[in-house]
């Protein structure tokens, strides 16, 4: 049975592909323009106007890969994003298990409180975070940003994992205990493989939200741990913006997302809905 045919009439379904195609074209044009600009020289950007680079050049990318202040930005971003993902998923796993399997004192309040942190405006936390991490001497370290991003990523991971874990029938736990598995052994050997896709999705979303966040990351770093996104902002305010390098740096930030998105394409909606689709 063809769902697409059933969904629409025979006449309209022939042109149905037009809507998503136009939408994707709309999405791609600004990205194309960015990549287009990143492959031009600055003189060509400012003087001429063309839909594609006339003198194709990779100089802008060479600038980024040749200058430590630029490429260290990428390394910094990736370090704290990975740290954050590992911390968030590691602490969220047992908590999500508790929420999906047991009732306990204050469980609903706790779950709601976690959600409020996912929804907390980063602008509210920027200044207090700065003071908190200054007090511990953690400003300009990767771990400070990783911990700060836990504010919204841990609740997110708990919610997503709880959604996936609730989909696993509780009989599996009980059977494993009867078969003589201890809890750690059961969790590692039986339960984790069952929710492997959930762990992947939770990790992906932690990665993503830590990767795209700028306000907190910028507030907590000075030079040593400065994320790539903040380095880009710095060059905007400088006089005589180097548009080509700017565009190349922007284009490079799209790559990590584009790579990982392929692996979670079928679960991405579930992640955004906090595991509740």
């Amino acid at each position: 049975m063809n769902t697409a045919q059933a969904g629409g009439g025979s006449r309209s379904s022939r042109f149905k592909w037009l809507v998503p195609t136009l939408y994707i074209v709309f999405l791609m044009i600004p990205i194309y323009w960015l990549i287009n600009m990143s492959l031009k020289t600055n003189t060509e950007i400012v003087t001429g106007f063309s839909l594609w680079p006339n003198n194709l050049t990779f100089d802008n990318y060479k600038v980024i890969f040749g200058d430590p202040t630029w490429y260290n930005g990428y390394i910094n971003s990736i370090i704290y994003v990975v740290m954050n993902t590992v911390i968030a998923v590691a602490v969220a796993l047992p908590a999500a298990y508790a929420f999906s399997r047991y009732r306990f004192l204050g469980d609903k309040h706790m779950f709601f409180w976690l959600l409020t942190n996912r929804m907390a405006p980063p602008a509210v936390f920027a200044l207090p975070f700065f003071q908190l991490y200054s007090a511990f001497g953690l400003i300009d370290t990767h771990i400070a940003v990783a911990l700060a991003h836990c504010l919204f990523n841990v609740p997110l991971a708990v919610w997503i994992l709880e959604g996936f874990m609730s989909g696993v029938p509780r009989e599996i736990d009980e059977t494993a205990y009867i078969d003589g598995y201890s809890f750690p052994k059961f969790f590692g050997k039986i339960f984790m493989p069952l929710i492997a896709s959930g762990i992947g999705v939770a990790a992906f979303f932690c990665f993503m939200f830590s990767w795209v966040e700028l306000l907190i990351a910028r507030t907590l770093t000075v030079t040593e741990a400065k994320p790539i996104a903040a380095i880009m902002t710095r060059t905007i305010s400088a006089t005589g913006v180097d548009w080509g390098v700017q565009a190349a740096a922007g284009a490079l930030t799209i790559i990590p997302g584009a790579l990982v998105i392929y692996f979670v394409r079928n679960y991405i909606a579930k992640g955004f809905a906090l595991g509740r689709v």
Binding site: P20, Y23, I24, L27, M28, P30, I31, W33, L34, M208, W211, V212, E213, L214, I228, A229, A230, M232, T233, I236, Q246, G250, T253, I254, P256, G257, A258, V260, I261, Y262, R265, I268
Partner: peptide
Amino acid sequence: VLMALPLLIPWNVVGTI
């Protein structure tokens, strides 16, 4: 994949674009 792409671009890069 193509539709999800804008969601994964850092927010200030979205601004820059």
